[in-house]
Amino acid sequence: MSEAFRRTHSEINWRKIVSLRNMLIHRYDEVQQDILWNDRHLRTHDVANSARTFITSAM
């Protein structure tokens, strides 16, 4: 994502997203898949709501 996009959407915790990405890329052998799956599954609702808000505001 561009810096401008991230600034425009400051409600998103970009640092947390980048940290998760870095862990998955560089320390994948330490990731407990079941915990990651459960966490992502539970947060799907939050992501869907954020996406709806973003799409609605872009229209």
Rank of each mutant, 00 (worst) to 15 (best):
L36Y: 11
W37D: 08
T44M: 12
Y28T: 06
L42I: 04
N22S: 07
V47F: 12
A48I: 08
I55F: 12
H26I: 00
E11F: 13
A58T: 04
V31E: 04
H41P: 00
I17D: 09
I35V: 10
I17A: 14
R7M: 10
L24I: 13
R6K: 15
N22I: 01
F54Y: 11
S10K: 13
Q33G: 09
S57Y: 01
D46T: 00
S57L: 03
T56E: 06
R52L: 14
R15L: 11
N22T: 02
H26W: 07
E3Q: 15
D29Q: 13
M59E: 07
M23A: 14
L24P: 08
R15N: 11
S2A: 13
D46W: 03
H9E: 13
T44S: 07
H41D: 06
N49H: 05
R52G: 01
S10L: 09
D39K: 12
I55T: 02
V31D: 02
S57P: 02
K16R: 10
A51G: 01
T8M: 14
R43V: 00
R40D: 02
A51H: 04
I25L: 07
I35N: 04
D39P: 00
S19V: 03
N13A: 12
S50C: 04
I12Y: 11
Y28I: 02
A4W: 15
F5N: 14
D29A: 13
R40P: 00
H26V: 00
R27L: 14
M1G: 15
R21Y: 13
I35A: 11
A48M: 06
F54E: 02
I55M: 11
A48H: 07
E11Y: 15
I12M: 08
Y28A: 11
M59N: 08
M59G: 07
R40C: 07
N38G: 11
F5C: 10
I35D: 08
N22E: 07
A4G: 14
T53F: 04
N49K: 03
H9L: 11
Q33M: 10
Q33P: 01
L24R: 03
N49F: 02
W37A: 13
V31P: 15
I17F: 04
S2M: 05
I12W: 09
W14T: 00
I35T: 02
T8I: 11
L24E: 03
M23Y: 13
D29Y: 05
